[in-house]
């Protein structure tokens, strides 16, 4: 199955507002009241659908109220797309139901696995990048897109180990999945920086090779620093603090190659006051504006 990346061509007949090429933030229950009271100038929100899979109650009421005022993105953590086993049909059905109810502008999942033999491990676990796993991931992405009836984005992971069986690098793997399934990609710049540090590669090389034309969303988050078995820095994708300076720099360099891409500030642990999260989003807007302005200036210069 192949779906065009252009949302207007996907088989959805919905009134979902597209996610604008602006920063959004992860929606957290501690911020519900602030958002409803202050009606802040933020372009969109993202949630983990797994947190809204109850039958009713306050989570849905808040999400409905916020969804009425803002575009929404669903970012799943539980499908285990990179897992060897079959996708969980019950979970897919719940996702489809949420998709129908909230009509999100974007819908994404991870290049990772989180379930094994019926056990849900609640973490985004790494997979070897082989011909076998490429086929598995493509089949799973096809199944998701067909079942939910829309295009999904697949996110690059942050990892702490490498497998000795890899047949290809991560960018080639993701590009091939996108080519074969028509899925878009979600580029997590913090994940690139975390993995680059942990596996000693150049994050700029990774980003330059990344097919930006396939990227429907960008993620930014903070990371923690520990040390590995040899005493070298080991970065942990903790989502527990502000975005680090090197990640902002990589983001700016990446944005300069685009006309702007929806960009999410993720903050899932040690969640700050709303104003702190809001100011991260505003900062992302400044960086995006600065980077994309340089691009149009250059174009202008070339044209004249």
């Amino acid at each position: 199955m192949n779906m065009n990346f252009d949302h207007s061509n996907t088989p959805q007949k919905r009134v979902a507002p597209p996610i604008p090429n602006k920063p959004g933030v992860g929606l957290k229950p501690t911020h519900y009241e602030d958002i409803l009271n202050k009606n802040p100038d933020i372009a969109w929100f993202e949630v983990h659908p797994e947190n809204y899979m109850g039958d009713g109650g306050p989570p849905h009421r808040y999400l409905e109220a916020i969804r009425n005022n803002y575009p929404l993105s669903l970012h799943g953590v539980g499908l285990s797309i990179g897992g060897a086993g079959r996708l969980n049909k019950t979970h897919l059905t719940r996702l489809k139901e949420l998709e129908r109810r909230y009509q999100p502008g974007l819908f994404s999942e991870h290049l990772a696995w989180s379930s094994h033999d019926e056990i849900y491990l609640n973490d985004l676990l790494p997979l070897p990048l082989t011909v076998e796993t490429l086929n598995i991931v493509c089949d799973h992405v096809d199944e998701v897109q067909e079942f939910v009836g829309r295009q999904m984005l697949l996110e690059n992971p942050s990892t702490y180990i490498r497998f000795d069986q890899n047949d290809m690098d991560e960018v080639s793997f993701l590009t091939e999945v996108s080519n074969r399934t028509g899925c878009g990609l979600l580029l997590d710049v913090n994940n690139v920086f975390v993995s680059a540090t942990n596996h000693d590669f150049n994050p700029q090389d990774y980003l330059e090779a990344f097919p930006l034309e396939k990227v429907g969303e960008i993620h930014l988050a903070g990371h923690a620093t520990e040390t590995d078995d040899t005493g070298k820095p080991l970065l942990i994708d903790a989502h527990d603090r502000k975005v680090s300076d090197p990640v902002w720099k990589l983001y700016e360099q990446t944005m300069a190659r685009t006309r702007g891409i929806p960009t999410l500030i993720e903050w899932d642990t040690n969640i700050p006051e709303w104003d702190v999260l809001y100011s991260e989003a505003k900062f992302a807007q400044e960086v995006m504006d600065r980077a994309t302005a340089i691009k149009s200036d250059e174009k202008h210069a070339i044209a004249s």
Partner: peptide
């Protein structure tokens, strides 16, 4: 008794 569903609620 690890979870068997991604819906941890």
């Amino acid at each position: 008794f690890p979870p068997t569903s991604p819906v941890l609620m």
